[in-house]
């Protein structure tokens, strides 16, 4: 962000804002006039007590101060498939300013039934690149850091240290257990989600709680029931939306979390069970 005249900014906002809202067209003018990125423009607008109009429908549940807090937050989404695609979409629209998106895979045809980022045209191309393109289209203020790698015990601490929240959108149990260990070590909250067919589980794991170690204590190897049920379009959307709500509340320090419990989602019988895990 280059040096600029705060007085000039004040005048610009007073002239172009409607109430305290600044339209996208006027934010673009502001970016051109001051040579700003969208992220920096959002920041200046909000710290001046105005709100980019893109966020106006957030405002009755999220104040301008909280919107600014989201802009200054960074979240890692581990996995850009079924869960990850929706989580990235929702966090970008919410206005989380920095997203690290991690996935070593490329899109395959069998992803098309449920993965938001998968399209006919991007089959064979990297999932993290699709995430970058999508976020640019829906909220250019969000800075996306794509990593086409697998996260494991060898690289996880270095990669994820400093995040405000890590989202588990991984497709295997071993990776999840590693992720919990990494988050425990770097003291970052982990928002857990797992799906199989009509069913899902979601939870919020604060450092020190090691819930997954307990949940998967009887696991030795292999996949869960997703190997026989597959995954339809709606189950990842439900689980990912529950995860995004948890991320929002962790970032804002607001509301009640799924702590030391998991929410078991059964869309076949349409039952949600809140299970304490001690």
């Amino acid at each position: 962000m280059k040096e600029f005249d705060h007085e000039q900014l004040k005048v610009f906002l007073a002239e172009h804002a409607q109430g305290d809202l600044l339209s996208w067209a006027n934010e673009l003018k502001l970016m051109n006039l001051f040579g700003l990125s969208c992220n920096s423009a959002d920041e200046l607008i909000m710290t001046s007590g105005f709100l980019p109009s893109r966020y106006q429908r957030n405002r009755h549940m999220i104040s301008t101060e909280q919107q600014y807090q989201l802009l200054k937050s960074q979240v890692a989404v581990v996995g850009c498939g079924g869960l990850g695609g929706y989580v990235i979409e929702e966090l970008a629209r919410l206005g989380v300013g920095r997203l690290m998106v991690i996935d070593s895979d490329v899109f395959e045809e069998h992803n098309l039934n449920r993965q938001l980022l998968a399209t006919i045209d991007n089959l064979g191309t990297s999932k993290v690149d699709a995430a970058v393109k999508r976020v640019k289209q829906i909220n250019p203020a969000v800075q996306v850091d794509p990593r086409q790698i697998a996260v494991g015990l060898g690289n996880g601490v270095e990669l994820l240290a400093g995040m405000d929240v890590v989202v588990d959108a991984i497709d295997n149990i071993n990776g999840r257990l590693d992720l919990e260990q990494i988050c425990h070590q770097i003291e970052v909250p982990l928002v857990y989600g797992a799906i199989a067919g009509w069913f899902g589980q979601v939870g919020c794991i604060k450092p020190g709680q090691r819930i997954l170690q307990k949940l998967y204590a009887n696991w030795t190897a292999g996949k869960g029931i997703e190997s026989s049920f597959g995954n339809p379009s709606f189950t990842p959307a439900v689980a990912a939306s529950l995860q995004s709500a948890e991320v929002c509340k962790v970032l804002l320090g607001h509301g009640g979390l799924l702590e030391e419990r998991i929410l078991s989602v059964d869309l076949l019988h349409m039952q949600f069970d809140d299970i304490p895990v001690q």
């Binding site: 869960l83 797992a194 799906i195 199989a196 299970i275």
Partner: peptide, 10 residues
């Protein structure tokens, strides 16, 4: 006693 299946997909 509550029994849950293994759910591991993403």
């Amino acid at each position: 006693l509550a029994i849950f299946p293994l759910v591991g997909g993403g």
